[in-house]
Design a protein around this nucleic acid. Structure first.
Lengths: 250, 250
DNA sequence: AGAACGTGTTGATCTCGGTTAAGGTGCAGC
DNA sequence: GCTGCACCTTAACCGAGATCAACACGTTCT
């Protein structure tokens, strides 16, 4: 338990202020929310399908991902999360978790009691709206993923995913626009795109050979954003990052 | 414009009360929301990708669906909606529509100004929570669709979709548990599942021959729920319909 | 009545991505 | 500095589902 100043919850505030105008007292109240800090090791679970979590989890550092396991044993990753994201609003408010949340890298997180989340959301409309907005953006990204996995070919899917990561990481101040460290194995990329690891490898190689990206271990450099976005059928609108939808990075 | 009693907005109230306990004054306030009634013809659009809608749309009768068109021209349907659903919360609150909403059948809808939605959501926590919960359930269904389309084979996908429809229609009081009218063409089913119409036809035929379902034009009878759910890798939890997750129909 | 159209059905063939299998590479632990 | 392991890479082959092509059937329009 801790809520000294500067609060560890700052990444959450930073993200929410992208979408809503907070007063000073909103900011103070948000940062003063009761919480427990915890470090999650790479690969460890934060929530398992079927759990009944009582706390929401805010990410402070690192990356996590949500996934589902289907009957045949295959895994589908449905989203990736980074600092500032509330990865467990869904599970804690809905009561029973319908998917798993797992640490992609070592991650520092804060657990906030679900009642405290509900309270602040309705006591302070600006904060409530930011949270609601956040779940709506989440939904928008899910819709794009349904389309990506359902109706795009392998090459397009991979390019699309690389573009999405570039923009989201950049928006979080975690990378430059055209160069980032991707902390995922090709198997995990396969589980994001509904492909096999072998085919992910083929597609990455192809994008590399074509000169659209360069790879160095797991770091990705986007050599030709415009054409990669074209190949990936990528339009940033669905990320609702605000600003000009047709700005520099398209 | 109309808000006489009984209000046409009743289907929305009915759905929200599945999830939240309303006071009489909550009910009155919800049904008294300002709205404009409209009838949408089959196939007509309610919102187009890129629009900046100022109203949210509540469905009173009929069916609508959301979809995205990818670069190659293919369509991916991302959800189906029925009476009570607020089909345009996302687009109106997020500002710019990131997908299309189209009438599957002739549909009666009510348009509510987005400001009125925001106001009531924060003035009345029970209503705000129900709306938020609704967007969270929406997200849960999207996650399941990502997994369905990404990691299940054609036969499983079709069976899963048929199970989902059965439960959702039944929950809305629009059908019996094991028999319902599916107002969709096989081409639309294909766009839900990421398959081709030809293959949807083959899978339906196969499920029919196997004795799991019976078809009469577009009406579906589930002859063997247990085995269809098994084939479809279907577990109802993600629908968050409440009640016993392991009840009769699971 | 007949034409035109949308939808469903079925078969033949093709292809994208899956499967299988075999190295290769780099890092952690002893 | 060797071993083991996780991950990446590449090649050969295979198969689920796509594509292409007919035809059937019912409805609406003329």
């Amino acid at each position: 338990m801790s809520n000294s100043n500067p609060s560890p919850l700052t990444p959450m505030l930073r993200k929410m202020e992208l979408w809503a105008a907070f007063s000073d007292s909103d900011r103070e109240a948000l940062l003063a929310m009761p919480h427990t800090l915890k470090t999650i090791k790479e690969g460890h679970y934060i929530v398992r399908d079927g759990d009944k979590p009582t706390h929401s989890c805010v990410m402070l550092t690192g990356f996590t991902y949500r996934h589902k396991i289907v009957g045949a044993g295959a895994r589908q990753i449905v989203s990736i999360h980074r600092a500032g994201d509330m990865v467990d609003l869904q599970n804690s408010l809905l009561g029973t978790a319908d998917h798993n949340v797992q640490a992609l890298t070592r991650a520092e997180v804060a657990f906030i009691p679900r009642e405290a989340v509900k309270e602040i959301a309705f006591a302070r409309p600006a904060i409530g709206f930011a949270m609601w907005y956040d779940t709506l953006v989440d939904g928008s990204i899910f819709r794009e993923w349904v389309a990506n996995v359902g109706r795009r070919d392998a090459r397009t899917r991979m390019a699309h995913l690389l573009c999405e990561f570039a923009l989201r990481l950049e928006a979080a101040g975690l990378s430059e626009q055209t160069h980032y460290e991707l902390p995922m194995t090709q198997e995990q990329l396969a589980d994001c795109t509904g492909l096999t690891p072998v085919h992910v490898n083929r597609m990455l190689k192809e994008l590399d050979k074509g000169g659209f990206i360069q790879r160095d271990k797991r770091a990705v450099t986007i050599a030709d954003w415009r054409r990669l976005a074209e190949i990936g059928d990528f339009q940033r609108g669905y990320l609702h990052l605000g600003g000009d939808q047709s700005a520099a990075l398209q």
